Simulated assay, not measured.
Amino acid sequence: YRSLSTFLGSTELPIYGTFMDGDNVNTTTLPKKGIMIMGNEGKGVSNTVAELCSDRLAIPQFGEKTTESLNVASATAILLHEIRK
């Protein structure tokens, strides 16, 4: 058993964290291999794990920016769709 932080600290793969202020996933070139970290719907990615992320991704918001978060299952589906394109 290893903690997530220990695992992430030992990998050479890029680590993509999902954040409200991250880079637009639609315009980011993603590698064939990597790790995607999904945050808690209310609290996001923990500070400890955020420090280990090599890149920050976001699903772009359209219109007035009033959304605080997306349902993590919905956000995961959108991000995985983008990765597979």
Results as ranks from 00 to 15, higher is better:
Tyr1Ala: 14
Tyr1Pro: 02
Tyr1Lys: 11
Arg2Phe: 11
Ser3Gln: 09
Ser3Phe: 12
Leu4Asp: 03
Thr6Cys: 14
Thr6Ala: 15
Phe7Ile: 11
Gly9Val: 14
Gly9Pro: 07
Gly9Gln: 03
Ser10Ala: 13
Ser10Tyr: 12
Ser10Phe: 09
Thr11Phe: 05
Thr11Arg: 00
Thr11Gly: 08
Glu12Trp: 03
Glu12Leu: 07
Leu13Asn: 09
Leu13Met: 10
Pro14Val: 03
Pro14Phe: 00
Ile15Tyr: 02
Ile15Ser: 01
Thr18His: 05
Thr18Tyr: 04
Met20Ser: 15
Gly22Phe: 00
Gly22His: 03
Asp23Met: 04
Asp23Ser: 15
Asp23Arg: 13
Val25Cys: 12
Val25Gly: 03
Asn26Arg: 12
Thr27His: 08
Thr27Met: 09
Thr28Arg: 05
Thr28Tyr: 01
Thr29Leu: 09
Thr29Glu: 13
Leu30Met: 13
Leu30Asp: 08
Pro31Leu: 08
Lys32Arg: 13
Gly34Val: 07
Ile35Thr: 13
Ile35His: 00
Met36Leu: 14
Met36Thr: 01
Ile37Lys: 02
Met38Arg: 14
Met38Glu: 00
Gly39Ser: 13
Gly39Val: 08
Glu41Asn: 02
Glu41Cys: 08
Glu41Ser: 02
Gly42Arg: 05
Gly42Ala: 15
Lys43Gly: 05
Val45Glu: 01
Val45Lys: 04
Val45His: 06
Val45Ser: 06
Ser46Cys: 12
Asn47Gly: 06
Val49Gly: 03
Val49Thr: 12
Ala50His: 13
Ala50Ile: 09
Glu51Tyr: 02
Glu51Ile: 14
Leu52His: 03
Leu52Ser: 04
Leu52Gln: 14
Asp55Glu: 09
Asp55His: 12
Leu57Asn: 01
Leu57Ile: 14
Ala58Ile: 09
Ala58Gln: 12
Ala58Lys: 14
Ile59Gln: 11
Ile59Arg: 06
Pro60Lys: 13
Gln61His: 14
Phe62Met: 01
Phe62His: 10
Phe62Ala: 05
Phe62Arg: 07
Gly63Pro: 10
Lys65Cys: 03
Thr66Cys: 08
Thr66Lys: 08
Thr66Gly: 11
Thr66Ser: 11
Thr66Asp: 10
Glu68Val: 10
Ser69Trp: 10
Leu70Ala: 05
Val72Gln: 08
Val72Gly: 02
Ala73Asn: 04
Ser74Val: 11
Thr76Ile: 02
Ala77Trp: 00
Ile78Ser: 02
Ile78Pro: 00
Leu79Tyr: 01
Leu80Cys: 04
Leu80Gln: 01
Leu80Trp: 01
Ile83Gly: 01
Ile83Trp: 12
Arg84Gly: 00
Arg84Pro: 00
Lys85Asn: 11
Lys85His: 08
